[in-house]
Amino acid sequence: MEELYQNYKSYAFSIAYRMLGVVADAEDAVQDMFAELQHRDRSGIQNIKAYVAKGVTNRCLNMLNSARSRRETYIGEWLPEPVSEGYDGPEAAAERKDNLSYAFLVLLERLSPTERAVFILREAFEYDYEAIAGMVGKSGSNCRQIFSRAKRILQTEPASRLPSLRYGAVTENLLVRFTAAFTSYDVGGMLELLGEHPVLVADGGGREVHTILRPMTGRRGVTALLTSKRVMHYLREWKPSCGLLNGEPGLIFTDQGVVKCVLCLSTDSSGERIQNLYLLMDPVKLSHITVPPEPPQS
């Protein structure tokens, strides 16, 4: 059992995190699945990897169904919990090259739990429809239809606003330019960086931290918010550093070594302008973010 756990815990977590978007919940789903596996007769399991995928998927479906009502009463916007490169939990070896981008993880919130499970198992883990059918309790043809419906839902976002499925679009140079414009209240510089229809979403943890409660959209509104000397002044009191968030460059703001917030970005279809900005200030969701190391002195 210990060998099974070591071999498949990262794989199980990579499914659970994509499904739930919360590290602690994903860890709970993985632990519960392996606890059940430990107490059952495993001699009849022909494909242990598929069994692990099915077990953790079903637990995530149950958790998502119970979480939906809580998120409907959440004060402000609910965003998934990011993880940083330095986090050495169960996902440390979870196929980073296949990570969904953070922006796409946010987009998955539009799907129902079953649509999300089918989409992730098919798109990120490349299971065929018959295998997925056994995991989610549907027929293969039904899973094919669910996957098509999920893609249509995700593609209702205009192409210019649709984030890439996997990471890699945001460059460190873009972050450096954004930081310079942000810290100097440079309206012109910010306008040069933002796409045609930017969206800024903030999550302060419901009642935990005061922040904007509704998404800000449009170049004028987002620029005004990012260059305001009143609304987001506290961010400029903290130290911004570039770090990897869900496998792609993002900004981590710290105060005396304590992570205070993170900013995840995605670009428009050109890859040269910022389209989505996700600001997370919920202390609970920052608990798996590590402070980036200081660059070596030249």
Rank of each mutant, 00 (worst) to 15 (best):
H210E: 15
I15T: 04
N7C: 03
V83D: 00
R71Y: 04
T73G: 06
R110M: 11
Q6G: 12
W238E: 13
F34S: 08
K285T: 01
P240V: 05
L64F: 03
E3C: 00
N62L: 14
C143N: 08
F253S: 00
Y167V: 09
E126A: 14
Q256V: 01
I45C: 09
E130N: 13
V170F: 09
M1R: 07
G168F: 08
R96F: 11
I146P: 12
L200K: 03
V258L: 13
Y11I: 00
Q38F: 11
I15H: 06
P80R: 05
A94P: 08
A181D: 06
G86E: 10
A67Q: 13
G168L: 10
E272M: 12
M281D: 00
A124T: 11
Y127S: 08
G44S: 12
V284D: 06
L194I: 01
R152D: 14
L175W: 00
E237N: 11
V291M: 06
P240D: 03
I252G: 00
S270K: 03
D88H: 12
N173M: 14
E192A: 13
D88Y: 08
L226T: 01
L105V: 07
G21A: 03
L79A: 01
C60N: 03
R207N: 12
I153C: 02
E208K: 03
K49S: 09
R96H: 15
N58D: 09
N276R: 13
V136M: 04
S69Q: 09
G250E: 04
H197S: 15
P80L: 05
G44M: 11
Y74D: 01
D128W: 02
R110Y: 07
N58M: 15
R166T: 12
E3W: 03
V231R: 14
K49A: 14
R42A: 09
V52M: 10
L244D: 06
S112K: 12
K239H: 14
N173L: 13
D282T: 00
V118P: 09
F119M: 07
S270C: 10
R122S: 11
G55F: 01
M33G: 02
P293I: 07
L100W: 11
A93R: 04
I153D: 02
I45K: 06
T211E: 00
S270Y: 08
V199Q: 07
C143G: 06
M33V: 08
V209P: 01
V118L: 08
E157W: 07
L79K: 00
P292T: 05
G257V: 05
Y51H: 15
L105G: 09
F13H: 11
R70Q: 13
P80N: 07
S269T: 09
G188R: 03
N65G: 15
F125Q: 04
S270R: 01
T290C: 09
A94G: 11
F34R: 05
V231M: 11
S101V: 09
Y234Q: 10
G205M: 00
A202C: 12
G134N: 14
V170R: 06
V22A: 09
R152I: 07
P158G: 10
P283N: 04
S164G: 15
E85R: 11
L111V: 07
H233V: 13
A26K: 03
S101I: 10
Q297V: 13
A16P: 06
F13N: 05
T217M: 12
T227N: 04
